[in-house]
Nucleic acid binder design. Structure first.
Length: 315
DNA sequence: TTCCAGGGAAAGC
DNA sequence: GCTTTCCATGGA
C-alpha cells in the first residue's frame, strides 16, 4: 500500500454541508477523524479518502489514489454529492408560500446533499435498517465491513491506520448465516436475507436487471428489488434514492410519517403504513414537493425533523 | 417494564 | 385485496 496521499480541491457554487450530509442517515461508513484538523474519512472502492471543508464551497480531499471509478477525485466527488443539482430548485417555488414555517426551518438544511453511493452497499445497509435505531444500523454496517471487507493499511504520522472496504458481493454470498448474524444485531433472518440477496447480485441476475435502471421506471426498479426477501417498498425506495440516484423516489418511514402529519396536516399519516396508505401518502407528498426532487427535498425535511424536532444529537 | 427505532411478511377477514 | 398481527432485537 502506497503511503502517498493525493490532494485535490472540490469547488462548488451550490451549498454542501459536509458533516450534515455524511451523517444524515444515508451513509453509514463515514467516520470523523482528527488529524491536524477534523477530517471525515471512508473507503470508496479501493480508495481511502479524507475530506475537510476549508471554507464554504471549498472541500479539500486527500485520497490514496488519483481516480475513483476512472474519474479524477474532484469530478467523482462532484457527482457523488450530486452537486449538479441546484439546491434552491429542490423545493417548488410555491412551497415557501404554502408552508412558510416549515420553509424557515428547512432552509438552513439545503447543504444536505443526497449522495450517489454504491448500489450493493446501499442494499445491504438498508436491509439492516428495519425497525431499528440509527446507531445500531451504523454498528451493523461497521461490523459487516470489519468482518467481510478487505483490510487496507495506511501509514500515517501517528502510525498505521486500518481501513476496511465494504464487502464485495461474493464475500457476503459465501458467508455463514450464523456468523453474519453476529454483525446484524443477532438477527438471523436479516443475515439470511442479506446472503440470499448477495447471491442474487453476484450471479448477475439482480445486477443485470438493475443495469440501466436509471432509465427504467420506478415501479420496475421497485419490483426487482422487492422480489428479494427482506426488501419491502420502503427499503426499495431508499435503495433507489441513495443507490441509484432516483431523486424522485420518496421513502416513507416512521419519521417522514410523523412530519407529514405534524408539518403538512396529512390525515392519512396518522394511520398505519400499509402498502395502500404508503402509496397514497407518496401521492400526497408529491403534491406538496413536486415530482422530480420529491425524495431530495424529503431527505432535507427528514434530517431537519430529526435534528430540530426530535432533538437527536447523536448521528 | 414499556415503548420506540429509517419495516417486512404472514395470517386473517 | 386490504387490514391486523406477529416477528426480531437493543437501547432509552
Amino acid at each position: 500500500m502506497s503511503n502517498k496521499l493525493f490532494k485535490s480541491i472540490l469547488k462548488t457554487d451550490n451549498r454542501l454541508d459536509l458533516k450534515q450530509t455524511l451523517f444524515s442517515g444515508q451513509s453509514f461508513t463515514w467516520k470523523k477523524i482528527d488529524l491536524l484538523s477534523a477530517y471525515y474519512v471512508t473507503k470508496i472502492n479501493k480508495t481511502i479518502i479524507f475530506l475537510r471543508e476549508i471554507e464554504p464551497g471549498i472541500i479539500e480531499a486527500l485520497s490514496s489514489s488519483k481516480k475513483i471509478n476512472g474519474l479524477p477525485i474532484n469530478q467523482f466527488l462532484f457527482n457523488y454529492f450530486s452537486l449538479e443539482i441546484d439546491d434552491i430548485k429542490v423545493f417548488p417555488q410555491r412551497f415557501k408560500n404554502d408552508f412558510p414555517e416549515v420553509w424557515r426551518r428547512v432552509e438552513p438544511y439545503h447543504g444536505v446533499r443526497i449522495m450517489r453511493q454504491d448500489p450493493f452497499e446501499i442494499m445491504v445497509t438498508f436491509m439492516c435498517a428495519q425497525g431499528i435505531g440509527m446507531h445500531l444500523i451504523r454498528r451493523q454496517v461497521s461490523m459487516i465491513a470489519e468482518g467481510y471487507g478487505q483490510k487496507v493499511g495506511l501509514e500515517m504520522p501517528e502510525g498505521e491506520m486500518i481501513f476496511h472496504c465494504f464487502p464485495i458481493p461474493s464475500a457476503l454470498a459465501s458467508a455463514d448465516p450464523d456468523e453474519l448474524a453476529l454483525c446484524t444485531n443477532n438477527n438471523r433472518i436479516r443475515a439470511a436475507n442479506i446472503i440470499a440477496m448477495a447471491r442474487s447480485f453476484e450471479s448477475g441476475k439482480l445486477a443485470l436487471a438493475l443495469v440501466g435502471s436509471g432509465e427504467c421506471d420506478l415501479e420496475t426498479l421497485r419490483e426487482t428489488l422487492c422480489a428479494h426477501s427482506g426488501i419491502g417498498l420502503k427499503i426499495a425506495d431508499c435503495i433507489a434514492l441513495f443507490g441509484f440516484g432516483r431523486f424522485d423516489t420518496f421513502p416513507i418511514d416512521t419519521h417522514v410519517k410523523q412530519y407529514l402529519w405534524e408539518w403538512f396536516g396529512i390525515e392519512a399519516a396518522r394511520k398505519s403504513l400499509t402498502e395502500k396508505n404508503y402509496r397514497y401518502l407518496q401521492k400526497e407528498a408529491r403534491k406538496i414537493l413536486g415530482n422530480e426532487y420529491a425524495g431530495y427535498a424529503g431527505h432535507m425535511l427528514f434530517h431537519c425533523w430529526r435534528k430540530e424536532i426530535k432533538k437527536m444529537k447523536a448521528f
